[in-house]
C-alpha cells in the first residue's frame, strides 16, 4: 500500500516535470537531468512515464541512463562525499583523500552506507583546480583539503 502511494507520487511529480517540455525525443537527456535533480536518482516509475510521453522504449532510456555518469538508478546517501580525481587534484594528492573516505565509511565509490547516511563519488574535475585538492559534501566545497580536514568534516556529519 505504502509503496503504491510512493509510486503514484513519483509518477505525478514526473508528469509535472514533463509539462514543461514538448513531446520531442531529443529532450530525453534534458528531462532526465531534471528528474535526477528532483529525486536524487531516476526511479523506474519515472522512466515509465517518460517512456510513454516521448514514445521511447524503456530499454533505450535505460541505455541512456547508464551511459551518462550523472544519472543514477539508486538514491545517493544523505551526505554525498565527492572527491575530485581531476588531474590537478590528483597530482596534489586527492587519491589519499579517496582512500581515507573509503576507509572511514567502509564503502566503495558509488555505494551507500547501510544507514543511507553517506555515499562516496569519485568525480572528474569539479573545476575548482585553484583550490586543489578538493572534496565536496553535497554542494559544499572544501579546498586545499587534507586528510585531517576530511576526517573532521566526516565526524561533523556523522554526529548530525
Amino acid at each position: 500500500m505504502e509503496e503504491n502511494c510512493a509510486n503514484q507520487r513519483i509518477q505525478a511529480q514526473t508528469k509535472e516535470i514533463l509539462q514543461k517540455y514538448r513531446k520531442e525525443k531529443d529532450l530525453l537527456i534534458t528531462i532526465l537531468n531534471d528528474v535526477q535533480e528532483k529525486f536524487g536518482f531516476i526511479p523506474k516509475q519515472a522512466q515509465m512515464v517518460i517512456s510513454e510521453y516521448l514514445s521511447i522504449p524503456m530499454a533505450e532510456i535505460y541505455g541512456v541512463i547508464t551511459f551518462y555518469s550523472r544519472f543514477t538508478l539508486a538514491p545517493k546517501g544523505k551526505y554525498n562525499v565527492s572527491i575530485c580525481l581531476g588531474t590537478a587534484c590528483y597530482v596534489k594528492g586527492s587519491q589519499k583523500l579517496l582512500d581515507r573516505a573509503k576507509e572511514r565509511l567502509k564503502i566503495e565509490p558509488g555505494e551507500v552506507t547501510p544507514d543511507g547516511k553517506f555515499s562516496i563519488d569519485d568525480v572528474r574535475c569539479v573545476g575548482a583546480c585553484g583550490l586543489a585538492p578538493v572534496f565536496m559534501v553535497n554542494d559544499e566545497v572544501y579546498g586545499n583539503a587534507t586528510v585531517k580536514q576530511l576526517d573532521e568534516v566526516i565526524d561533523k556529519y556523522m554526529n548530525l
Binding site: 525525443k25 537527456i29 541512456v64 551518462y68 550523472r70
Partner: peptide, 23 residues
C-alpha cells in the same frame, strides 16, 4: 542543452548524438 557527465561527448559527433537525446 545540458551534458550529463560523459567525457566522450566532447567529440563533436558524440556531442551531436547527445543533443539528439541518445547515448
Amino acid at each position: 542543452r545540458l551534458g550529463a557527465g560523459a567525457f566522450v561527448c566532447g567529440e563533436e559527433t558524440a556531442l551531436l548524438e547527445s543533443i539528439e537525446g541518445r547515448r
